[in-house]
Design a protein around this nucleic acid. Structure first.
Lengths: 333, 333
DNA sequence: TTACAGCCTTAGAGCGCTCCAACCAATAGA
DNA sequence: TCTATTGGTTGGAGCGCTCTAAGGCTGTAA
């Protein structure tokens, strides 16, 4: 269980440690003869460089840290894909860590990530207080995804929830709907912009907004529908705050003997894999998740290379994905 | 962007670097006076120890590496929860990394994880060849989750798919079903044990097994049902290879005007969050995922502490979760 | 007074690596 | 022939920390 060091490789190849170092870093100023001798020795010994010692000595790092607030959410997996893609392209490795949606755990995750002295950090929808982020940002470049910030030291990448909500409303209106309710996400992140976008779009069409308080879960969506039914205030179309909420809403509608989209059209938000299931086939708003990741990694690397010190605020455009839960009022069952 | 070192803290506190080191490691042989002086100085400077330098100097590591083959699958998130729980309890940190289900990427992920010289590695359902795992196992303790191995140097944690399938069949038989088909997972991991368990359980009940070739996706599940319908060979109950497949099957059954569970009962496998959605409410087989993680971390730490050198093979019992997609033949719609 | 425990504290070596300056051919230019 | 120059190679310092062995204090006993 003891790994060979550069010294061992040097000894075996009959060269100096410094030369092995040059070979390992792919320096051009090494003769072909020595290079192959060194590589051969390394191969035979099963040597691979010690990233920490390297980073310690060079005072640089080729590692990007990624803090994922919730590993259970596939949304983040796709963002990580984007980060990973760009990072690998530029010769950086990523290490991931999770905060489990708890500020305390997240704090520890952050601390742990920091202790590796990565070149920079991407925080995916962090729940720690802004001050903690600001403090970390004094030590290394930080990019926030799916969370906004006024800190001038951090970059942010977000989707434009107002636009997304507007797209959904426009779609429903173009199908002929006039009574469109929004089941909102309460305090949930991004719930604000979505609600504002919905209200603005409704007003732009000369329609009356109807915001129903709800949450980002399927049970909350079902509950909201039941309350609408009880109040006899059911609209012809529903814009849910996210896909889970929408699925819950659909289920409550069907329980009540109503048909989607014949009686009520439903639009989700996020385009999760759930929405794509043929059993669900939900019309929804898609966010360019991998693009989030790519932009985040890109912004981070710009800071790492000190190519930029001004903060960047990316606001990406969501898009509408039409499936089978929307139709003109009275349309197909 | 330059972080303070132990030297800076020592200078500020008016003590030696070694004393700061003792304080940081929580040594009891430091006077209360000095300890508080050091902690105060560290606080003021925003100092936190450099994990890599520490690990380099101490030739030990308090980091466990976790390689997740597919970050998109929430299954792994729950395993990670279990690992994280045990690791934190014992003062270890984890760093995660993903292979994106591609052997090449996974290899690189492994290499990257290895370069941090963690105390040990947990590989979640890795797709790299066994030889690569064996080679890594020469350098540090390794535990495999959701993948078996004959290597005597690695521990494994798996669920008992045969038992799971048997539980499902027993449940259906107890409801009165006699014609029960299995939509199988083909080459997918764990598909073999599930199929074997299904066949064995059917035969144990004196029933005729009916294995339909399928895959771990919802479209495959729907396809399998359509082929059964076309052949006029629809049974009264279906055991799918996983939840996605089951949802696809249900959807195809409903498209054909059949009712679940009135006409056909359906059982999934995995108890994903999908199954728990009230819109789906799928009877399924649950695997103790967090327990996988806890056992994996535990086994790893035993090796790390050299408390054990014999391999351990955990085979955990799955359990049945009854929801609303199963009923006696001709039962409720 | 000296001796001798404790108990704290510290200097210094060294972990595996990078990087710099110096070095050593071998060749080119004068 | 001698000096530059170039291309390849090397020793040594040092990154931020830990760990060992050796110190410096006190206070108590002889």
């Amino acid at each position: 269980m003891v790994r060979p060091t550069m010294e061992d490789v040097a000894l075996r190849a009959g060269v100096s440690r410094a030369l092995v170092s040059l070979v390992m870093r792919g320096s051009p100023k090494v003769s072909e003869m020595r290079r192959s001798a060194v590589l051969k020795a390394a191969e035979e010994l099963g040597y691979s460089p010690h990233a920490m010692a390297r980073s310690l000595a060079s005072r640089t790092s080729t590692v990007l840290g990624v803090m994922v607030s919730d590993l259970h959410n596939a949304f983040f997996a796709e963002v990580v894909d984007g980060i990973d893609e760009v990072a690998r392209e530029r010769g950086f490795d990523i290490i991931i860590n999770t905060g489990g949606r708890s500020p305390a755990r997240e704090r520890r995750a952050l601390e742990s990530l920091l202790s590796f002295r990565p070149a920079g950090l991407v925080l995916l929808s962090p729940v720690v207080p802004a001050t903690a982020i600001g403090k970390a940002a004094e030590q290394l470049p930080i990019v926030l995804v799916a969370r906004s910030s006024r800190l001038s030291t951090v970059d942010t990448v977000n989707d434009d929830g107002e636009t997304g909500a507007r797209l959904a409303v426009d779609h429903l209106v173009s199908l002929g709907h006039k009574r469109i309710a929004h089941l909102d996400g309460g305090e949930g992140s991004q719930a604000g912009p979505r609600r504002r976008g919905y209200v603005a779009a409704m007003e732009a069409h000369g329609l009356v907004p109807q915001v129903v308080s709800s949450e980002y879960t399927d049970t909350a969506g079902a509950r909201a529908i039941r309350s609408l039914l009880a109040d006899d205030a059911l609209p012809t179309a529903i814009l849910s705050c996210n896909d889970f909420n929408a699925v819950g809403a659909i289920s409550a509608l069907e329980d009540a003997g109503l048909h989607v989209p014949h009686d009520v059209s439903v639009v989700g938000y996020d385009n999760t894999s759930l929405a794509a299931l043929r059993h669900v086939s939900l019309t929804t708003i898609d966010q360019p998740r991998a693009e989030f990741g790519r932009l985040a990694a890109d912004a981070l690397l710009q800071r790492v290379r000190e190519e930029r010190t001004e903060p960047v605020r990316h606001l990406l455009n969501p898009s509408l994905v039409v499936r089978t839960t929307t139709a003109p009022p009275g349309g197909p069952r």
